[in-house]
């Protein structure tokens, strides 16, 4: 696995995957931005929104796109982020109605959690149900190697 690290996050990428750990630019002086991770088993386009706008329409059935979006400290302790630790995904977590932008054939999965005092949303888009078992195995391999520093 290839290692990728920035902004207090370290993760491993399976062969053929690519990724970016970034933080959006600050537009207002008082603004604080947090880490956004984009991972995919295809070429990530440069122009993409946090939750896959500009990415998912071009996905093919074997493709997978993973977002790890960090929220601000004000989200800590709220019921939405009650789940502790880096999760794993299962087939039951995926559905066509869990997509930010519904597209034919695609399935989405969203899970909010807190790891090492940092609140995150894990959002996964699978290109098709036919490839879901492999996609789940690869995503879980990435999550197993995800290290969140406080």
């Amino acid at each position: 696995m290839k290692s990728l690290a920035a902004h207090g996050l370290t993760l491993g990428l399976p062969a053929g995957w690519e990724g970016r750990i970034q933080r959006r630019g600050i537009t207002v002086a008082a603004e604080q931005t947090n880490a956004v991770v984009h991972l995919a088993n295809f070429a990530l386009p440069e122009q993409r929104d946090d939750f896959g706008g500009g990415v998912t329409p071009a996905m093919r059935s074997p493709d997978v796109f993973v977002v790890l979006f960090e929220y601000g400290p004000e989200s800590l302790g709220t019921p939405l982020f009650a789940s502790k630790g880096v999760p794993r995904v299962t087939a039951a977590m995926f559905g066509s109605k869990r997509l930010q932008r519904p597209l034919p054939g695609q399935l989405g999965c969203q899970h909010f959690f807190t790891a090492n005092g940092r609140p995150f949303c894990l959002y996964v888009v699978a290109g098709s149900r036919a490839h879901l078992p492999r996609i789940i195995a690869e995503v879980n391999a990435v999550l197993a190697n995800l290290d969140v520093q406080p």
């Binding site: 290839k2 990728l4 690290a5 920035a6 902004h7 990428l13 062969a15 053929g16 995957w17 690519e18 990724g19 970016r20 750990i21 970034q22 933080r23 630019g25 070429a43």
Partner: peptide, 12 residues
């Protein structure tokens, strides 16, 4: 932009 990047070339 203060980001870490991994671009897949081999196997793409």
């Amino acid at each position: 932009r203060d980001d870490a990047v991994h671009v897949s070339v081999v196997g793409a």
